[in-house]
Structure formats: structure tokens, C-alpha cells
């Protein structure tokens, strides 16, 4: 059951990712990426990381991708402005990527095999994470708010018209 779910989610994720990088229209790409994120969230649930699954949907699929969509639509970038890229370079890129994948996979092929318990383990529960976050990681958590503040200020300044 879990294996079937894993396979389905994986196929959805990989397929949507491929669609994302191949589709001509940026809006389509964004929508395909949201699908990928949903699939990944499914994986999180399989791995019993409910908190991250929720956050992933809210932050990525909800906030970030909407932001992307916003920009694309507001600036009207959906038009097929992208000219055909240098064919040779594209082939080189694909070959390079394939080799990259092969090498990485080959590197992990010999790794000692360890099991993952689907739907088990309490590491990803909201209760546990909350405890850890607000005890061990309280300082980074607070600092991240500063990060956000600076990001807000930065983006406002950058996009402000002269």
C-alpha cells in the first residue's frame, strides 16, 4: 500500500517536474510546480512529517507560488517571448544533467541500505517539532524574523521606482 502510494507520488512528482521545465508558458510551469509541491507534501505525510507537509503547502504552494503567479501575470510575461535556445547548448545541458544524475546515483548505490518506516516515527509530529523549535532552536527562529524583515525591506527598496 505504502509502496504503491510512493510510486504514484513519485511518478506525479517527476512527471510534473518534467512538465514544469518543458512547458513554454510560465504560468503553466508555475501550475506544474504547484503539482510537484503537492506530491512532495504527500511524501511528507507518508514519512509521518505532518507539520512540514502542511507548511509546505501553505508556504510553497500557497504563498511562494502565488507570488510567482502574481509577478508573471502582473508583468504580463506569459507571452511566448522566449526564443529558441541554442540547440547545441541544450543538448549539452541535458547530457550533462543525465551524467550528473548517473554519477550521483552510482555514488549512492553502494551506500548501506537502511529502512524508512512509512507512517511511523514521531519526529515530524507538530508536538515534537514545536518543542524542539521553541527550546533548542528558539534563537535561530527569532533571528529568522529579522531575516524576513530585511527581506521585506530589501524587496521594497529594490522594486521601488526611482
Amino acid at each position: 500500500m505504502a509502496t504503491i502510494l510512493f510510486i504514484i507520488l513519485s511518478i506525479v512528482a517527476i512527471g510534473s517536474a518534467l512538465m514544469m521545465i518543458t512547458s513554454k508558458s510560465p504560468v503553466n510551469s508555475i501550475l506544474w510546480l504547484i503539482v510537484v509541491f503537492f506530491a512532495i507534501s504527500g511524501h511528507y505525510i507518508l514519512l509521518n512529517a505532518q507539520f512540514l507537509a502542511v507548511v509546505n503547502i501553505i508556504v510553497y504552494a500557497g504563498a511562494i507560488m502565488v507570488l510567482f503567479l502574481f509577478v508573471v501575470m502582473l508583468m504580463n510575461l506569459n507571452a511566448e517571448t522566449e526564443p529558441a535556445k541554442n540547440q547545441r547548448q541544450q543538448i549539452i545541458a541535458i547530457i550533462t544533467g543525465g551524467c550528473f544524475l548517473l554519477v550521483l546515483l552510482a555514488a549512492f548505490k553502494t551506500a548501506t541500505s537502511q529502512q524508512v518506516m512509512v507512517g511511523a516515527g514521531n519526529a515530524g509530529l507538530i508536538k515534537t517539532l514545536g518543542k524542539v523549535l521553541f527550546t533548542n532552536y528558539i534563537l535561530p527562529f527569532e533571528i529568522s524574523s529579522v531575516l524576513f524583515l530585511s527581506a521585506i525591506v530589501g524587496s521594497v527598496i529594490i522594486s521601488k521606482k526611482e
Binding site: 549539452i92 545541458a93 550533462t96 544533467g97 551524467c99 550528473f100 554519477v103 550521483l104 552510482a106 555514488a107
Partner: peptide, 16 residues
């Protein structure tokens, strides 16, 4: 970026 990836590739192969 392509060159960077190629470089990484080389490093990985070497490591292998």
C-alpha cells in the same frame, strides 16, 4: 551554471 555543474560532475566522478 553549465560549467559549474560540469565541475561538480568532475568532482563527483573523482570522488567516486
Amino acid at each position: 551554471v553549465l560549467l559549474m555543474v560540469l565541475g561538480m560532475l568532475v568532482l563527483f566522478i573523482l570522488q567516486l
